[in-house]
Amino acid sequence: MSGGELLRLEGLEKHFILSRGLGWSRRRLRAVDNVSFAIPAGQTLGLVGESGCGKSTLGRVLVGLIAPTGGRILLDGQPVSPARSQTERRHIQMVFQDPYASLDPRMTIHEVVAEPLRINGGYTPERVDALLAQVGIAAEAGRRLPAQFSGGQRQRIAIARALALDPRILILDEAVSALDVSIQAQIVNLLRELQRRIGLTYLFISHDLSVVRHISQQVAVMYLGRIVEIGPCAQALDSPAHPYTQALLSAAPDPRRRGRRRIVLAGDLPNPLDPPSGCVFRTRCFKATERCAREVPALAPLPDGRQVACHYAEAVDRTRLAELLVPLTRASQDAGIPITKETHKEDPK
């Protein structure tokens, strides 16, 4: 079942045009900017990046909730039409973060899962019971309302509903982020088991790199609407090459790596309406030079095949990220500057 490429994005873009007040001035927000990647059937691509970088927007475009402003989506090699056919729609389903908000509180669990089947045809009570059983919910529980279930159980129900129409791809938008670790582990295991059993393909959106590592073969790292690094997890997460990927991995607290030193990025996320010139990451980057302000780095392959958008891309083993700090610390010590302050971006040596 796995192998062939199921989903491909080519230069996908979603720009929001915001009009400011009553004036004529309009501003373009590049929420998703020239994104291209492919996911093989039966595999998982993890999508990570900070708040507002465009992960959900990308998911919403893929599932057809909003129309792209550019680029193409191909399913099984066939372009998906802008006005989606019923089949195209049922092939791509989405599961959201908030298990409390995403289920209609007045519907019984049985009805929640039955609804897409009633709309598209194919409803039988047995089918709904089987869908619930597949996610570990007893058929008798179908009579109850969402309020009577815990967060983890509601997320199971949301998954059962998304599976009702036999989709080929699930977009999981922070689907386990709100859950406690022990419950999160149950849901991650369920997703993996479903993938193995019915060959589902996932786009797994998350800000938790460890969870992404567990469930994905490939990972894409997004910053301000663009992919800055993409490749197999064993490359991009074990020896990250983009300074942003390096900083994310270094900043994520990990009880298994206590007491290590970490890269602390300077500054805030930039305003997406007024992105920096050149490389969008340069205002927070510890490697930035003048060139970065002038030239937009293209997403280009390294010798190992993964792609990186940085003029100074260099793969560094994850366990040795702290060493990147050494020259930096020396430079800032010479200048009498504490390393964690807003200052070291001014003067990258």
């Binding site: 406690d180 670790v181 022990s182 991650v188 088991e193 460890s210 590592r213 074990d238 009880p255």
Partner: peptide
């Protein structure tokens, strides 16, 4: 012990995560 076991790690991959059965 159950909590620590369910914690995904950047190093351990490819296996099922351990998890505590049931709900709080």
């Amino acid at each position: 012990i159950g909590l620590l076991a369910s914690l995904p790690s950047l190093d351990a991959t490819g296996e099922m995560l351990a998890s505590i059965p049931g709900q709080p």
